[in-house]
């Protein structure tokens, strides 16, 4: 047991979080290895923030067990929190203080000596590209700069485990890539990360493994590339066509199909043999003179997996309520 657990930064077993009678997180189990970047994906309300909050000891666990950095978070919250860095979904900086003061005040909560805090604060400002803003009052910063400061602030105690709840929401593309780059650097230095995000590209770039959640349960888990192969194959063929013809196209394509899904009037067909699928469908469409809006063949990505997994359950639940 001990050898297994030492390598794990987070071990969640049958973790459940209820608000009243509503289960926001329902009996889920997962492990995050040391040095790994682990992603939590899922639509709004899936339970990502609820899980993150239990891990940093903010939100009490309803049932199950949760070990964080080899300790029970319920028993040793202070010791665990001393080794964590947290970027919450909502910024909670000190708006009246300057950027530098924010870092210094936060260092206090970790009992860092003043000179150490000062040194680290300056490193962090540099690392997050905020040096020029050191003396700016936080209230006057743009949303993206606040977000970067929030991330920088989470590094003040040189955490072993970073909990990042949508760290790049609201960042411009340049800043987002900058943050990705920094996160990769941290990972290379051995920092473990738990990341929630709605940017699938972010998950693909950063996460070694991820889970897809919906309504507090795990739909799927694995490595991003493996999930793509497993669920949608290599190619996606998008066809804009009225829903009445979807059935026809599906049956024509069936020999090559790995999966499919509808989004509005669009039909998306997934296949490992994209070229063949497109050519064969094209022939049949031409022969029957079907009216096609547009047609596009492209490589698949994590977003396809996400849409397929969460779309299925959304559709499933709609059918339930109708029936």
């Amino acid at each position: 047991m001990s050898e297994l657990t030492v390598d794990q930064a987070i071990i969640a077993q049958d973790l459940t979080k209820k608000f009243g009678t509503f289960s926001a997180v329902n009996n889920i189990s997962f492990m995050v290895s040391r040095g790994e970047c682990f992603g939590l994906l899922g639509p709004n309300g899936a339970g990502k923030t609820s899980i993150a909050r239990m891990i940093f000891g903010f939100s009490p666990i309803t049932s199950g067990t949760l070990r964080v950095l080899d300790q029970d978070i319920r028993i040793s919250a202070r010791q665990v929190k001393a080794r964590l860095g947290v970027v919450a979904q909502e910024d909670n900086l000190d708006p009246e203080l300057t950027v530098l003061e924010n870092l210094m005040v936060y260092a206090n909560y970790f009992r860092l000596p003043r000179n150490v805090a000062r040194e680290r604060a300056e490193e962090i400002l540099q690392f997050m590209d905020l040096t020029e803003k050191a003396d700016a009052v936080v209230d006057e910063l743009s949303g993206g700069l606040k977000r970067r400061l929030t991330l920088g602030r989470a590094l003040i105690n040189q955490p072993e485990l970073l909990i990042l709840d949508e760290p790049t929401t609201g960042l411009d593309p340049y800043a987002r890539h900058m943050v990705w780059h920094r996160l990769r650097q941290l990972k290379e230095n051995g920092t473990t990360m738990l990341l929630t995000t709605h940017y699938l590209e972010e998950a693909r770039q950063l996460c070694d493994r991820l889970i897809v959640l919906n309504r507090g349960t795990i739909l799927e888990q694995g490595k991003p590339a493996a999930l793509i192969t497993k669920h949608v194959g290599a190619f996606a063929l998008e066809i804009g066509v009225e829903p009445g013809l979807h059935g026809q196209l599906l049956s024509w394509g069936s020999p090559w199909l790995k999966a499919s899904q509808r989004i509005g009037n669009d039909l998306i067909l997934y296949s490992d043999q994209g070229q063949e699928l497109a050519e064969n469908l094209g022939l049949k469409i031409a022969k029957d003179h079907l009216r096609i809006g547009y047609q596009r063949l492209r490589p698949t990505n994590l977003e396809d997996v996400f849409l397929k997994l969460t779309g299925e359950t959304l559709q499933g639940s709609e059918d339930e309520t109708e029936g």
Binding site: F58, R78, K81, A88, D91
Partner: peptide, 14 residues
């Protein structure tokens, strides 16, 4: 509004 309390309790502060 500022959620300062939330920020503090993510550290060893209870």
């Amino acid at each position: 509004r500022e959620k300062i309390f939330h920020g503090m309790v993510a550290t060893p502060v209870s």
